[in-house]
């Protein structure tokens, strides 16, 4: 059964049709929320609340083909709100701070394609580095790299100018790159050819 038909059914009072939508998307929504809030129990609560909210506001969904992106945005918004409430994080990061570009001082000259494979160890470190970014940068990186949102969409969700999205992404990537280099992990990956 197509999603549009399902949504129509729900709108016509057949709540059971909504279960298919839950079964279809709960795993993805769990992943999206977990990447933002990082706690299993809180994630489950937010996933449930997102579906409930989507259900209650289904008649405000403008185009039925857009159910998943719409649901995902509800989930992201709820995650950000809960995160702000739960953790009053102290964020020392300031947008006007410029990062130095020291990356290219650390290049070696040979390339080895085998070393360029993304190892599990590297992934673990990257995740750790992303998670330890200043909160403002972490959110932008997750929304862009993991959730594939556009600059415009991120700006509107976080209520910041598009230019700020741009510079936070730039700075966040510089920081991760730097930490990879310091960890000695960038050698195989970021090599001069």
């Amino acid at each position: 059964m197509s999603e549009i038909v399902l949504i129509d059914k729900v709108l016509n009072g057949d709540a059971s049709a909504f279960e298919f939508l839950i079964l279809k998307y709960q795993k993805n929504i769990y992943g999206t929320v977990f990447n933002i809030v990082k706690e299993d129990e809180l994630t489950k609560d937010i996933v449930q609340e997102s579906f409930l909210k989507a259900y209650e506001n289904l008649n405000s969904l403008r185009s039925r083909e857009q159910f998943y992106p719409w649901l995902k945005k509800i989930a992201i918004n709820l995650s950000l709100i809960k995160l702000d409430r739960n953790k009053r994080y102290v964020d020392m990061y300031r947008d006007d701070k410029e990062e130095d570009d020291f990356f290219f001082n650390n290049q070696t000259d040979e390339s080895n394609p085998e070393q360029e494979l993304l190892t599990e160890e590297l992934r673990r470190y990257v995740r750790k580095f992303v998670d330890s970014l200043p909160e403002k940068l972490r959110r932008v990186i997750i929304l862009r790299e993991v959730e594939d949102l556009s600059y415009e969409e991120i700006a509107s969700i976080l209520n910041i100018p598009v230019g700020t999205v741009r510079s936070r992404l730039f700075n966040a990537r510089q920081i991760i790159k730097d930490r990879l280099l310091r960890q000695g992990l960038a050698d195989g990956l970021y090599r001069v050819s």
Partner: peptide, 10 residues
């Protein structure tokens, strides 16, 4: 590469 690594890490 960094972008791809971040994506696959999460």
């Amino acid at each position: 590469k960094l972008k791809l690594t971040i994506k696959s890490s999460f």
